[in-house]
Amino acid sequence: MKHAEKTEHISGNSSVLQKLLKVVSGITGTPKGAYNIRQDGKSIDRQSTDNIEIRSKENGQGIEVYVKPGTKGESVHIPVVVDESGFSDVVYNDFFIGDNADIDIVAGCGIHNDGIHLSQHDGVHTFHVGKHAKVRYTEKHYGEGSGSGKKVLNPITVVHLDEDSYLEMETVQIEGVDTTKRVTKGDLKDRAQLVIKEKLMTSGNQNASTEFEVNLNGVDCSANVMSRSVAKGNSFQGFFSKINGNNACAGHSECDAIIMDDACVTAVPEITANHVAASLIHEAAIGKIAGEQITKLMTLGLSQEEAEQEIIRGFLK
């Protein structure tokens, strides 16, 4: 009975909400597993499972997600939708992942702004990942709407990785968002592994900057940060990464950007070794699409524009 009410609740909402939910979290109808859906600053639907409990914070500014030790193969969806022009939303979500758990977390934020006011969502996600636990965390950002109001997203992610744990974070933002400042921080204990994959495309006058700061504190811990981006129009992208090797560890960061039109891309890598056995590498490449790649695809029958699209599609795939 309770379940039936919920279904009605989600599907009873506007088509804007339905669309944004689908884009940012792949949700159609009622999602499986644990979830919390937040719209314009309020939690509008939620479900916990036997192993995953979602609670409101006492101050009402977000949720706490508790995953029992040993939980395997379950997922948590926590999409956020802002569709009221001029709404500014700040949320703090904390995740406590028990030892040996192995789960997927899907977050995402969709902004629909048909109005003239600035709509903003600042999400702070903090992960406490237990020993030997594994987390795959996906975050999608999407903006749409015909109004002149700006769409702003500023996600902050903080990851604390306990011994032998693993967290893989994948973020995707393809146009639509006017301004983004993403901050990701991580600290790792012994043998912990952090993998971050970022895909980004900006156009028009959009501005996106990404900051990573990773502290490799444990023995044999490792971090791998990979960013692929395409900057079009007059957009600006900044990539700032800081990796500190404080023990015998391995750190790798890689920024690969295609620049088009009058865009600007800056990449500022900083790697610091505080330990003789810290091995740190940074690679950065910024350049336009290689002419010979376009030529090759044209010999297969694609026009120049089709060739460029195909190259970008592959690059951000």
Binding site: L302, I311, G314, F315
Partner: peptide, 18 residues
Amino acid sequence: PVRFKGLTVKDLLHLASH
């Protein structure tokens, strides 16, 4: 031959076969 980041052998064969 030209190299591509991201495009696979299948992608190109698919395009090549129209």
